[in-house]
Design a protein around this nucleic acid. Sequence first.
DNA 1: ATTAAAATTGCAATAGTTTGCGTTTTTTAT
DNA 2: ATAAAAAACGCAAACTATTGCAATTTTAAT
Lengths: 249, 249
Amino acid sequence: MLKAERHQYIMDKLLEEQKVVTSDLALALDLSEDTVRRDLNELDSKKLLKKVYGGAISIQEKTDNIFSININAEEQKKKIVTKALPLLHDGQVIIMSGGTTNLVFARLIPEDLKVTIYTYSLPIAMQLSQHPNIDLIFIGGKMQKNAMVTIGMDVVQVLSKIKADICFIGASSININQGLTEIGYEVSIVKKAMIEASDKVVSMFSSNKLNTRMPHVVCELSQLDTIVTELETDDPRLEEYKKLGVNVV
Amino acid sequence: MLKAERHQYIMDKLLEEQKVVTSDLALALDLSEDTVRRDLNELDSKKLLKKVYGGAISIQEKTDNIFSININAEEQKKKIVTKALPLLHDGQVIIMSGGTTNLVFARLIPEDLKVTIYTYSLPIAMQLSQHPNIDLIFIGGKMQKNAMVTIGMDVVQVLSKIKADICFIGASSININQGLTEIGYEVSIVKKAMIEASDKVVSMFSSNKLNTRMPHVVCELSQLDTIVTELETDDPRLEEYKKLGVNVV
DNA sequence: ATTAAAATTGCAATAGTTTGCGTTTTTTAT
DNA sequence: ATAAAAAACGCAAACTATTGCAATTTTAAT
């Protein structure tokens, strides 16, 4: 992995989570913490983030009366989510996690689709509020302010009581051995509940998330029905996933 | 292989993979790494990619996505909510309804205030997510998409189980006889529950809401502790309200 | 076709970067 | 105060880039 790639990865992560932790990045990227620190310091000196003890936080101009969400590589994300649109059908009950890929997905849901969507992400809910034909239900609870999602027992409890046809789950990291892993424990718990509540589990992410890992396991690959990336379905990097029975789109 | 062909190959690869590695390209194109580097440098100077140590990365765009909310008479609202700021104290448990006045209020909450806030409004929650010291709890439920608030039994139920020190309630309409009234039935129910859950009830609104009415009653004036408007406290339009025991700020 | 100039290519030596490790220093939280 | 975690520092090994140069190929004009 190129250094510049790592930098992109870090900035990407920062956009999603508002902060990054040195040790988590070292784990995710399979690097020494030294190198991560050097990366963070470099990005700091370029004023792209603010290095703090233990990691880094994003520097974002105070948004005044506007809620702005930065999306990295939006074109790529559009490509990914477009491939997932055929999975949607009238009448479905859907659960959506947070993340910018899901946000792009939310925006591209056809106007005439009539579905019920549960979400626990503020930006996703804001986006879906614009949609004329969606029954939208927000799952409340304690807010994880950086990611703008609710977490905790309340969320899990609501999820345990619903039964969805399909869920679209964002991924921070995925690899063959651990499967889907998350940076935060709380979020991993919520995602587990989400998977439990859904007949079908779909995860959309860009290929740079492949073969990275985070501390908290969400689920094994066997629990994923479909993964959607920007890659061609015959790309060698997806081979192992297909072997394990995951549907690759 | 012609140079132009190679360039095309590199750009194709880049489009697909977001990055190229010098050594891989040299191998794939059966060229020396020197030549590949020269190619990459050339493409870099044409701004078609970004040359980095070890290879090159695609120039990735970062789009800004805005959920914008129009706030009418923002200056006036700032004036109103500023008068309410002294009601806030560390340690309070607070409930906030939706509305743009409350949104402006949320934005002006001092950075160092440590409180717990319950809300059922997406924009309010988004705004409060930016605040470093607030414990934020979102009350989930079915979304009323236009107003971007949750409504219904779920919301009422959560509200019935909490006890807040103070609530800040937006007002569609207020008058002496009916008190606070709302345009939507669902919202009126939620606001009732909110008032029930709070020791102290504060409503902020501009004076043009005075002496108007809507179909659904929220509460009588006697249940309001404090109203905050842009008017001077001795303004004759507020006289009647003061007489009924409402604190006027 | 021939030829000279210009561009391209690979090589080798040199220079510069990156990275992980051991050690020391600083920071944080108890 | 003290212990634990994180950061900084210096170093060596591995990797990547730059440079000048000679050999080769391409281009363009007679």
